[in-house]
């Protein structure tokens, strides 16, 4: 399955699911002004190498992820993990506050100043490590967690079409993954 196909499927699935499963309703979206701030954050926390289009896509997918987050859902317990847990409340409200706390002048700051503001915010939030998936620590580090743990970022890091978790089929998997096409 191609990466885009997986992402499209994910988006379609995320849209379809909440109506089917009645979990706690919460605001899981950001206001338009907050989204604009998030895009400015993305400029400094995501790699330049993926370009404007890549950063835009990553933010859009993060917002989709946030929109379809379900508080109180069962988490994976599975074999060897017998403790039953549920997902925490939506981080959307916290994210909005964190974006606001970057300061009124954040949108007008030069890039270097924005880097400093985001670093200070992450440090102040006490975030010590990149989470496996967004966990509400800080929206900037959560955006990084979302992107850098993605299938796409794994491919970008290795400059190869690894396609983790994408049902690639058995044929050809004994070969080295093909290089990423230029521009990705």
């Amino acid at each position: 399955m191609k990466r885009r196909t997986l992402l499209q499927l994910l988006a379609a699935t995320l849209v379809a699911l909440p109506a089917r499963i009645g979990l706690r309703a919460q605001s899981t979206t950001l206001a338009a002004a907050d989204v604009e701030r998030l895009r400015l954050v993305a400029e400094v926390v995501l790699p330049q190498e993926i370009g404007i289009a890549g950063r835009t896509r990553a933010v859009d997918q993060f917002l989709t992820w946030l929109q379809h987050y379900r508080a109180g859902a069962e988490t994976d317990h599975g074999y060897g993990f017998p403790r039953l847990r549920r997902t925490a409340s939506s981080p959307a409200a916290k994210y909005a506050r964190q974006l606001h706390d970057l300061g009124a002048t954040f949108p007008q700051m030069a890039v270097t100043a924005r880097v400093g503001a985001v670093e200070a915010a992450i440090t102040a939030a006490g975030v010590q490590r990149l989470a496996g998936r967004p966990d509400g620590g800080h929206i900037a580090s959560d955006l990084m967690a979302f992107y850098f743990n993605s299938i796409e970022a794994n491919d970008v890091c290795y400059r190869a079409q690894i396609g983790r978790d994408t049902c690639r089929g058995l044929n050809g998997s004994e070969n080295r993954p093909a290089p990423l096409p230029r521009g990705l």
Binding site: L10, E74, G78, T87, G132, R133
Partner: peptide, 13 residues
């Protein structure tokens, strides 16, 4: 997909 994206139980219930 929800398990991959959110860590939800892939076998709900």
């Amino acid at each position: 997909l929800r398990s991959l994206a959110y860590g939800e139980n892939p076998w709900p219930g």
